[in-house]
């Protein structure tokens, strides 16, 4: 049996911490700090020179036309970008005070402290509702007593506002739920690993308006204890749920760059950059 998998991620992160050096210590004020981030797919550069600092316990929206690299951007924060063959990353990303691309940092440890919700609901098809929520701790090899695991599952299903709907069918396959319920199950699954940051990649794009509304409501509730970054192509959604908004746009070279990052209200009412204004008023994209 593998022991490393059972090691709490904090231990790995602490081990990695000295490597970063005191001189570059990230200010604890930001939950996520991105410095000059660039990402490639093979020879093609998708994003370039993106720098952002995201405040803890806020909702930040990343908006921009499709293909501008906004999904790539948040996948870099979870070290998921590199899973694609040929993909690579430059620059630095701090989550809390951990430099997640430091040479000694284990991507697996990074992923356990950053949660991710994907565009299409993707519950594990072979697992029940219960097992889906418990999947993170279980597959990482944590030995949690049954009672504590029951509590963990219930707590996170409640946080995802799903408990009342599924408490009688915890043993049913996760795939049996409706689309909106599946997405909330995926949120519960991500929350169950107790992430400091929750990344959401267009989480409502495959859902009906009512399910979308419930997830937006949920995001506002969760923002009390989790930092949320949501990628969306829907500007109304961005303005409804977020306090901060980043606008990413691909130039003529096809490479996405950060155009503007500001408080949501400011960005939507008094954008500083003409390209932002063009986008939010619907002149392109």
């Amino acid at each position: 049996m593998d022991r490393t998998g059972a090691r709490p991620p904090e231990a790995l992160l602490e081990a990695a911490a000295p490597a970063r050096g005191a001189a570059v210590a990230a200010p604890a004020a930001s939950a996520v700090r991105i410095d000059s981030l660039g990402a490639w797919y093979g020879a093609r550069k998708a994003i370039e020179g993106i720098s952002l600092a995201i405040a803890p316990r806020t909702v930040t929206a990343v908006i921009g036309p499709s293909g501008c690299g906004k999904s790539t951007l948040i996948r870099c924060v979870d070290r998921l970008h590199e899973v694609t063959p040929g993909a690579r990353v430059e620059g630095r990303v701090h989550v809390g005070d951990v430099d997640i691309y430091a040479p000694g940092t284990d991507p697996v440890a990074v992923r356990s402290m950053v949660g991710m919700v994907f565009q299409k609901p993707n519950p594990f098809p072979t697992m029940s509702v219960y097992e889906n929520v418990a999947a993170g701790p279980r597959l990482r090899g944590s030995r949690i007593p049954r009672g504590a695991l029951d509590d963990l599952v219930e707590r996170n299903l409640r946080r995802a506002a799903l408990w009342d709907e599924v408490k009688d069918k915890l043993g049913r396959p996760g795939a049996d739920l409706s689309g909106g319920q599946q997405q909330r199950l995926c949120i519960a699954r991500a929350l169950a690993t107790d992430p400091a940051v929750l990344l959401m990649d267009e989480p409502c794009s495959a859902l009906d308006p009512i399910s979308t509304y419930r997830i937006e409501e949920l995001m506002r509730e969760l923002a009390g204890d989790v930092t949320i970054v949501i990628v969306t192509h829907n500007m109304q959604q961005a303005s409804r749920v977020s306090e901060w908004t980043a606008f990413v746009l691909a130039g003529d070279d096809g490479i996405g760059r950060l155009v503007e990052f500001d408080a949501t209200e400011q960005l939507f009412t008094k954008p500083a950059d003409p390209r932002t204004e063009a986008y939010i008023t619907g002149r392109f994209g």
Partner: peptide
């Protein structure tokens, strides 16, 4: 087995080998 299933597991901080043995192969 869809890529998103693997990514969901990796994003939970599950090791690649555990992902393959416990999520991908059962699926």
């Amino acid at each position: 087995v869809p890529l998103t299933i693997r990514e969901a597991s990796l994003a939970l901080g599950v090791h690649e080998w555990t992902t393959i043995l416990r999520v991908v192969i059962p699926t």
